[in-house]
Every structure is written in structure tokens, then in C-alpha cells.
């Protein structure tokens, strides 16, 4: 044990740079901790202070319809966006010719650059009136399906419209991510499948989709995270009420947490403000749980990841 390992030379520049990156890394944790601390501290008066008129039946009775609405709207959005995103990604990565797939890729990225308030305006002024006749048709012909029942909305500002708007909003990030994963499918797998006589669709089914599954799941979770927190578009488009309702085509819809905060905060006073912040804390919790589930799903399927 006489030979000592030569010590790495540490230059000033290395130390400074290492510390700078450390600071950058730690700032994420600090920001998260500060936000969480703010939410906690500001939520307390909602429970300790004088009773709040809006939440006369208790905090959970107040917040539950909003939790339901938040999850419901996001699930509808994902149900629409996921197949569409997979389709877009497959077309760009495996079907379109090079030139066109590039143009399409840019267009998808452009969708992501549209601010949510514009989506909201478009939702109210274009999409909702456009969809109203279809809603009426759905209600008349498929009204026996529970989600299509009830008194159909005359303006189209319904849960389903919100789901569609949200789906379009989460589509770009999902399509972009899934496309990247599909592009990484090992060439050999694809060629092997084709050499065995598989059609293009069979090749995709056998090689591309299994390889891309964790990517699809993490893209869906990323999209879900965005849909859960979307505020402006929902506040503008949805016709809300403090109820729990599975009906997708009526004017009485469960509001989402984020949209409810946006709607009520400007005129809120006293510990009503704290109550709204407490609902924000609940949303924070939901988003965290979703992210943790996503991490868990991806890690469980690590053997499929691009590493092998």
C-alpha cells in the first residue's frame, strides 16, 4: 500500500464551475421548498380562522368537486390526446417522407407555442359553437350512455369541450416526446421484423410500440401534469358549478382546482384567500403523486428503455 493515487489537480476554474452547477441544481430544490412552505403557511388560516361562507360544510366538501373536475378533465384530455399523439409520432417517424415529416414536426412544435389564453378564446368563440350540433346529436342518439345524458348545453361550453381543448394543448409535448422515442427504435429490430415477412404495421406492432412503451407512458404523464394544472383555458371555456357530475355535455360541470382559484381569487378577501391557497396545496399534492406514479411506472419497465 505504498503507491498513493495521484491526486487530481483542482484548478480554480473547476471549483468555481462545480459550485455554480451545484447552485443551479440546488435552486430547483429551494424553489420547490419555498413554494411548498408558502402553500402550507398560507393554508393554515383557512382551517384555524373564522368559518368561511363558501366552505360551510368543511374544507373537503368544498374541494372535492374541484378535485374530481380536475382529474376528470385531465383524463378526458389524455384519452383523446394519447392515441392521437402516438399516431402523429408514428406518421412522422415511420411513414411520412423526410421533407414532409420535418414540416409536420415544426407544426407540432408551433402548437406548443400558442399561449393558453388563446386556446381559451378559440375554445369559446370557435370550438364550442362548432361542436354544439354534434353534442345535440350525441345527446339525442347516445343519451343512454351515462356520460352523454342530461340537458345538453346550448353553448357547447362543456366538460367535453374542455377535454378537447386540453387534449390539443398537451398534444405537442406528447407527440414530440413519443416521436423521439420511436426514432430511437433499433434499426436492427425493425429490419429483422421486415425480413421475417412482417408488413409495416406488423413491424410497428412488434418492434416500435413495445420499445416505445415507457416513452409513451412518460409522455402521457407529462401531458397529464400539464392538463391538471391548466388554468386559463379551463376558466374561460368551462361552465362550472360546485357539483360532481360525470355528464360531459351539460352546462353543469365540476370545475377544476386551478380554474376555481383563478375565478374566485380576484374578489376573495380574508381567509377565503387562504382557503383557495389550501386548494392549491391539494393540486400540488395531486401533481406530485402523478409524477411519482409516472417515475415508478418508468423505473419498473427500465429493461425496455433505450439503454439496451
Amino acid at each position: 500500500m505504498t503507491d498513493v493515487k495521484p491526486k487530481a489537480v483542482r484548478r480554480l476554474g473547476d471549483i468555481v464551475f462545480a459550485n455554480l452547477t451545484f447552485l443551479a441544481g440546488i435552486s430547483i430544490l429551494l424553489t420547490l421548498a419555498t413554494v411548498a412552505a408558502f402553500l402550507f403557511a398560507q393554508s393554515v388560516p383557512a382551517f384555524t380562522g373564522e368559518p368561511i361562507e363558501a366552505a360551510e360544510n368543511g374544507f373537503w366538501a368544498y374541494v372535492f368537486p374541484f378535485i374530481f373536475g380536475t382529474v376528470y378533465a385531465s383524463v378526458i384530455a389524455l384519452a383523446i390526446a394519447t392515441p392521437l399523439a402516438i399516431g402523429i409520432a408514428l406518421y412522422i417517424s415511420h411513414f411520412a417522407n423526410r421533407r414532409f415529416s420535418q414540416i409536420l414536426g415544426y407544426a407540432v412544435d408551433l402548437l406548443a407555442a400558442i399561449p393558453s389564453v388563446v386556446y381559451g378564446l378559440w375554445g369559446i368563440l370557435v370550438l364550442a359553437p362548432f361542436l354544439t350540433p354534434s353534442y345535440r346529436w350525441l345527446n339525442e342518439n347516445l343519451g343512454w350512455v351515462p356520460v352523454f345524458g342530461g340537458q345538453v348545453s346550448a353553448t357547447g361550453r362543456t366538460m367535453l369541450t374542455v377535454g378537447i381543448v386540453l387534449a390539443i394543448m398537451v398534444l405537442p409535448i406528447m407527440a414530440a416526446l413519443i416521436r423521439e422515442v420511436f426514432l430511437q427504435t433499433p434499426r436492427l429490430h425493425e429490419e429483422a421484423a421486415l425480413a421475417l415477412g412482417a408488413t409495416r404495421w406488423e413491424m410497428i406492432k412488434m418492434a416500435v410500440l413495445p420499445f416505445g412503451r415507457p416513452g409513451i407512458i412518460s409522455a402521457a404523464m407529462l401531458g397529464l401534469g400539464r392538463a391538471l394544472g391548466e388554468t386559463m383555458a379551463v376558466a374561460m371555456v368551462l361552465s362550472p358549478a360546485a357539483v360532481i357530475s360525470f355528464d360531459m355535455l351539460t352546462s353543469t360541470n365540476s370545475n377544476t382546482i386551478a380554474a376555481n382559484i383563478a375565478l374566485q381569487f380576484p374578489e376573495a378577501g380574508g381567509n377565503y384567500t387562504n382557503l383557495l391557497i389550501a386548494t392549491g396545496l391539494v393540486l400540488f399534492g395531486i401533481t406530485m403523486v402523478v409524477n411519482m406514479i409516472a417515475r415508478w411506472v418508468i423505473s419498473r419497465r427500465a429493461e425496455f428503455s433505450g439503454a439496451n
Binding site: 363558501a54 364550442a128 353553448t155 357547447g156 361552465s239 353543469t252
Partner: peptide
């Protein structure tokens, strides 16, 4: 100030929201 859920109806954000909802429907 906050609409009671049992009265139903349709909610819209702000004056402009109400006006556009009323003009948008029949």
C-alpha cells in the same frame, strides 16, 4: 356573489364571458 349550484344554469367568466356565452348560444 357565488352562484348556488342547485339553481343550475351555465357559468361564464367575467362580463365578456357572459356576453359571449349568450351570443354564442340560442
Amino acid at each position: 356573489e357565488a352562484w348556488p349550484a342547485e339553481y343550475g344554469g351555465e357559468g361564464a367568466q367575467g362580463t365578456s364571458g357572459v356576453v359571449s356565452a349568450v351570443s354564442g348560444g340560442n
